[in-house]
């Protein structure tokens, strides 16, 4: 029997998260203009990156499902999209918390925030579609199509949001911060830690999804 990678994964996650927290709160130097508030950046940006990866993962699951017709790929796609919605929600919440003291407002039409808000709507729509689609085969097919279309939309959303900003310039954005080396290391630690959180969550969710498929098959066989 193959040894489960769950133990090592949990260990790596614990170490990485402790390092990321140390990096964000202690190691990284305080940003000159925004002060300690800027430290939310070490959570916000990794969440945003991992969120993109999650939506790409969902689209990949969709492509594989349409190519093979195997339910496992539908489970992968659904799991990635669900966790992606969780990450996108956290991106918007942390962005909002950051904007409040820095820009004096809970919401700004900053391209990153706009992009994530639209992505949030797309993937919440994906979850609604799954719930409303009807029988299993149709649900998987529709979900795959929408996951692919949604992911193809991501760069278009980003370009439009940037185009919008070009028309009404914002003074500074999250990307205009010059990163000192200690900040870059803290960011990297955050990226590793949050990627591992994603891997752990999505593995658990896929396992649950596969169990659901098996239970369904057993119930169908018994009926």
């Amino acid at each position: 029997m193959r040894r489960s990678p769950d133990g090592p994964l949990a260990g790596a996650l614990l170490v990485a998260m402790l390092l990321a927290l140390y990096g964000a709160f202690v190691y990284a130097q305080t940003e000159r203009v925004m002060g300690d508030i800027q430290r939310i950046f070490y959570v916000h940006l990794p969440l945003a990156w991992v969120g993109f990866v999650a939506f790409g993962h969902a689209a990949w699951g969709g492509i594989r499902y349409l190519a093979t017709g195997r339910r496992e790929w539908d489970v992968v796609s659904a799991s990635a999209a669900e966790i992606g919605v969780l990450f996108a929600t956290l991106v918007i919440v942390t962005g909002s918390l950051w904007a409040r003291p820095v820009w004096g407002t809970w919401w700004t039409w900053d391209p990153q925030l706009v992009t994530y808000l639209i992505l949030w709507f797309i993937y919440v729509g994906y979850l609604v579609l799954r719930a409303a689609a009807g029988d299993d085969a149709r649900q998987a097919r529709f979900a795959a199509v929408f996951a692919i279309a949604g992911f193809v939309d991501v760069p278009l959303v980003w370009l439009s949001a940037r185009y919008l900003r070009a028309l009404s310039p914002v003074i500074f954005t999250s990307h205009s911060i010059g990163l000192a080396p200690s900040m870059a290391w803290a960011l990297l630690a955050g990226l590793v830690a949050w990627s591992l959180v994603y891997v752990a969550l999505v593995r658990t969710r896929i396992r649950l999804g596969l169990l659901e498929v098996r239970v369904q098959a057993l119930e169908d066989a018994a009926a």
Partner: peptide, 28 residues
């Protein structure tokens, strides 16, 4: 999307929920 949503339980309610966010780049 219309070909998809018409066969779902929510029908015409689902189309704007899916279509408007996907079409937002065009609208912007």
């Amino acid at each position: 999307l219309g070909a998809m949503t018409v066969t779902t339980r929510l029908r015409e309610v689902l189309l704007p929920i899916l279509l408007l966010p996907l079409a937002l780049p065009v609208i912007i």
